[in-house]
Write a protein that binds this DNA or RNA. Structure first.
Lengths: 173, 173
DNA sequence: ATCAAATAGTATGCAAGACATACGATTTTA
DNA sequence: TAAAATCGTATGTCTTGCATACTATTTGAT
């Protein structure tokens, strides 16, 4: 077999936050992480990472990142929006948006043309290929979400979304 | 300011009769994002990004990332653990861990020495400077978490953590 | 006991995202 | 009309994530 086999996202057993200093042994694969456990940021990062890996595997054939998908989706539902419109909606800065736009353009997923009313702006929209790609990806993502979220009930899922939204929306009003 | 003619906001899509409770608050410069709104992945990413920015600002003086802090914390509570031990606990691969270890070493936050029982391993532990740094950072992070999570009650916070953990723990073999 | 497989650390290289800074073209507004 | 704000753009840096591959060491199966 290949010496370097990765993709082993599943070797974690359930564990109680039992305080047991593991010391310099570490033959067990469970480490003590007491303080971290109470940080929402820690769990948020771990959960996002896990979900993102699942996401990436699901859309591997299309080579899309979460961010790119979000951008494409926003562009699809808001044809003619400018780069900053999309960037703001996704909380990313112009520079980061720029590199993504270039990438998406070079892959032929989006098109761009100068706005007639404001010549500073470039209106972005999906290319025909972008449209069909997005269409196919929708089904894949829906399935990925369903399977990844299977451990939660519909109600819990909705609750999770509500809690997450409260964390990043607001801070404005 | 920006009288900018909002490009068509609520353009209807063919699919999805839209019973979605989504556009409840979309007012002025809001872009339509119907489909995205139902994806946990989307909200997870947005929430994590928002929290991470707050985190980064909070520890700006110490120049630490979430991941680095988690690693340091794990090293602190599990002195003598090897690189892979830490890597596995944080779901990162050896190569990524390697670059982080090098960074942390060059900053003098951790120390390393060969294991006597298994000469392939290098035991990692905090340096005195790492200890004092971590000590000071703890307070800062606690405060950052408290203020960022202020929009949630204690119970909601606990619930959020529970839900997140269920998303990434399990998946055991 | 021996040889093959697994493990730990290491080195490279690449893609992406995030952020900072700066500049030109084009509005907006004061 | 001049100053300020916007938008797109270009650079460059840092961190993470991941693939590959190589060495040294330990383990395990025969």
């Amino acid at each position: 077999m290949a010496p370097d086999e990765k993709r082993s996202l599943g070797r974690r057993r359930d564990k109680q936050p039992a305080p047991s200093p593991v010391a310099a042994d570490s033959s067990e694969d469970e480490l003590e992480r007491s303080w971290l456990q109470q940080l929402v940021g820690y769990h948020l990062r771990m959960a996002h990472l896990a979900l993102y890996r699942d996401f990436a595997a699901a859309v591997a054939d299309y080579d899309l990142t979460q961010k790119q998908l979000a951008a494409l989706e926003l562009i699809a539902t808001n044809p003619g929006a400018s780069q900053v419109d999309i960037a703001q909606a996704l909380s990313m800065d112009r520079a980061t948006m720029m590199s993504m736009v270039k990438r998406l353009l070079s892959r032929g997923l989006i098109e761009r043309r100068a706005s007639k009313i404001d010549r500073r702006r470039h209106e972005i929209r999906l290319s025909p290929e972008g449209v069909s790609t997005l269409e196919r990806v929708h089904g894949i993502i829906d399935h990925h979400e369903d399977s990844f979220l299977a451990v939660l009930s519909g109600e819990e899922r909705a609750q999770l979304i509500t809690l997450l939204r409260r964390l990043y929306e607001r801070r404005s009003a």
